[in-house]
Write a protein that binds this DNA or RNA. Structure first.
Length: 336
DNA sequence: AGGCAATACTG
DNA sequence: CAGTAT
DNA sequence: GCCT
């Protein structure tokens, strides 16, 4: 159970990837599924210029409570991210799903001028800029951000200075660790945390299985959080294990925030859709204190930061061992 | 015209 | 129940 | 906004 050995498990993408064929010297063939879970997941995005634009528009629509349009641009971005190479002409979009008139117009504009009018307009909008900053705080969503904006607040300092604002627990932690959790997590930091969790698990149950999942498992160099899955060979004890791990992290003095969600997994009720069962396993969303001394290559922190530690968002999932093994097998077969 | 993932937790 | 998170 |  060395942290680098276990096979990838990714909560959302348990369905087999279908790699789109690349026609010789031409456009990506019409092989992109309209379903995100069947699209190729890659480390590299060859269409950042377009996907960034779509994400700005999606965010804008989200701030304006236009969930449908928001979703449409999120999907469009997701489709382009799955492509094996960068778009170089509008024609290449013809076979792609989730790209309609608006999305194609944006692509055309960017291909031609390097930027799109609608996007530039959003980016220069004060309301958009402010809501973007507000929602970058963990625990602050569009509704709260909008409420603050309407009351005339324009910066995080304004929020913190306003005595009438009552932050909930999540938001308090969001502000408390703002710098840390909005800064990328390096692969070295993810490895260090995997080791911390691995040793914690090991100390409770010697016969445990554990794997680093999520983006790092797919080879990414940076992420915004660390996803780890683990279980015990003793079927039925996985929830106890997770609870014991949380207790131990607390005792170690590194548990800064914890949102625990008990298992809702029930074989009798969801046997046919056992893929989606990942959502039902015991899990927790944490903020952990990571010591610089535990990271081989040092923390991903600015040089002037002399604390010797940083906060990191960590998600732990603990499925029953039979599900764990199943997930590992499925993933191995699909990617190697 | 109607749907867009689904769901658990907090306050 | 509304709001946020994964 | 895009799809059915």
């Amino acid at each position: 159970m060395r942290e680098s050995r276990p096979v990838a498990v990714e909560t959302r993408h348990l369905i087999q990837d279908t790699l789109p064929a690349i026609s010789e010297g031409g456009a990506p063939a019409a092989e992109v599924s309209q379903y995100a879970c069947q699209r190729r997941t890659t480390t590299d995005n060859y269409n950042v210029v377009f996907t960034d634009a779509f994400e700005v528009l999606a965010e804008c629509y989200e701030f304006n409570q236009m969930d449908g349009r928001c979703l449409a641009f999120r999907r469009a971005a997701s489709v382009l991210k799955s492509l094996p190479r960068g778009l170089s002409s509008l024609e290449e979009t013809h076979s792609l799903p989730c790209l309609g008139g608006h999305a194609k117009a944006i692509i055309g504009e960017i291909l031609q001028h390097g930027r799109a009018f609608d996007v530039e307009k959003v980016l220069s909008d004060e309301r958009y800029q402010t809501l973007k900053i507000f929602t970058s705080v963990f625990g602050v969503g569009p509704k709260t951000a909008e409420k603050w904006y309407r009351s005339g607040l324009r910066s995080l300092d304004h929020i913190l200075a306003d005595q009438s604002i009552q932050l909930n627990h999540m938001q308090q932690n969001g502000f408390l660790h703002y710098g840390d959790i909005s800064r990328a997590v390096s692969k070295a930091e993810a490895r260090a945390l995997t080791k911390v969790i691995g040793e914690t698990v090991q100390a409770i149950t010697p016969d445990a299985l554990l794997a680093l999942t999520g983006g790092f498992r797919r080879g990414k160099e940076f992420g915004h959080d660390v996803d780890i899955i683990f279980t015990t060979l003793e079927l039925g004890m996985e929830e106890n294990l997770l609870l014991a791990v949380i207790k131990s992290l607390e005792k170690q003095g590194i548990l800064l925030y914890c949102d625990y969600q008990a298992s809702t997994f029930d074989l009798t009720k969801v046997p046919a859709h056992s893929f989606e069962a990942m959502d039902h396993f015991a899990k927790c969303f944490l903020i952990l204190r990571l010591e610089a001394s535990q990271v081989e290559e040092g923390l991903n922190s600015p040089v002037e930061d002399i604390r010797g530690w940083r906060a990191v968002r960590v998600d732990l999932v603990s499925p029953p061992v039979d599900r764990y093994a199943f997930a590992l097998l499925g993933w191995t077969g699909s990617r190697v």
